[in-house]
């Protein structure tokens, strides 16, 4: 029981990190229909921005805030400078996936060329341990969970209740109708990339804090689990992404405690495959069959 509860604690922390990232990934996808596989690189680069600031003496939480902005700016820049030209030339959804893989690889390897192939870690105290029965969480972990809850609630509320959120939901399905309703689609798309990058930045720093050592490719390695969570919940649905993150996070950590930690990803994808066999559209789906890159 003690093993189970402590694994559950780890699972919730992993789920929190997954939720932040998966919501960012799925939000951008739901607006633009670009399946962005360079998302992990934005996480990593933001994580390193926080690392450099942290090494220079800044506390980890302010460093995370700066990294969030850096992630947003990077994500926006990648879209405007690299993806936009391809989209303008009419590259289809599958072509864009290849473009995003390439951009991700280039970012990871460029970063590796700068920082080298070694391991890094933040200078950040884990904080006081809080005991909830057999459940032990550090102050740092509690903060990550709190940030995840706040961010996901904020994104969900913004999507549900603001006109901007409605515009975002409408945009990916029918951009010309959205424009005819007075929605400034270019600006909304830019905002989606920015917000997605901010979430990638926060998710990246949270991930690096949690796993304590990281390299120039850690974000991209974790991306596959993020995608599992996003797809499990129904790609394009932030609510689904949170649920998917909880399932994947808890199953992998509990599984790792009783089984082999090396097989975490195997577990994540086993869950994904079983769920998709029962519900091919994911738990909450918005996946339309006929979609094109929104522009």
């Amino acid at each position: 029981m003690a093993v189970f509860l402590s694994a559950l604690g780890f699972g919730v922390v992993t789920a929190a990190i997954l939720a932040i990232s998966a919501v960012g990934f799925t939000l951008q996808f739901s607006v633009t229909n670009v399946f962005n596989l360079s998302f992990g690189s934005v996480m990593t680069i933001s994580g390193f921005v926080a690392y450099w600031l942290n090494s220079a003496g800044l506390g980890i939480w302010p460093a995370m805030a700066v990294a969030a902005i850096a992630g947003g700016a990077l994500s926006l820049a990648i879209n405007e400078l690299l993806y936009e030209p391809f989209i303008r030339h009419g590259v289809n959804l599958f072509g864009m996936v290849i473009v995003t893989i390439s951009v991700g690889l280039i970012c990871d390897h460029a970063l590796q060329a700068i920082v080298g192939p070694s391991f890094f870690s933040y200078e950040a105290p884990a904080g006081k341990a809080f005991h909830f029965a057999d459940f032990v969480l550090t102050g740092q972990e509690l903060a990550i969970i709190g940030i995840a809850v706040a961010l996901t609630v904020l994104v969900q509320a913004a999507l549900q209740y603001t006109r901007l959120g409605k515009a975002m939901r409408g945009l990916s399905v029918n951009p010309s109708l959205a424009r005819a309703c007075g929605v400034p689609t270019r600006r909304v798309i830019a905002l989606a990339w920015f917000v997605s990058g901010v979430l990638a930045g926060i998710g990246g720093v949270a991930l690096f804090l949690d796993i304590s050592t990281f390299t120039a490719t850690t974000g991209s390695e974790f991306l596959i689990v993020i995608i599992a969570a996003a797809v499990l919940g129904g790609i394009g649905s932030p609510r689904g992404a949170v649920l998917g993150a909880l399932v994947v996070g808890i199953v992998t950590e509990v599984g790792a405690a009783y089984w082999n930690p090396e097989l975490k990803d195997v577990l994540a994808f086993s869950v994904l495959i079983v769920v998709l066999l029962v519900r091919p559209q994911g738990l909450f789906s918005q996946l339309a069959t006929e979609r094109a890159v929104a522009r």
Binding site: K166, G170, V173, N174, S176, L177, A180, Q286
Partner: peptide, 11 residues
């Protein structure tokens, strides 16, 4: 309005 009646289907 559009020649093909256009609505946001998931709303």
């Amino acid at each position: 309005t559009f020649q093909a009646a256009s609505v946001f289907p998931r709303m």
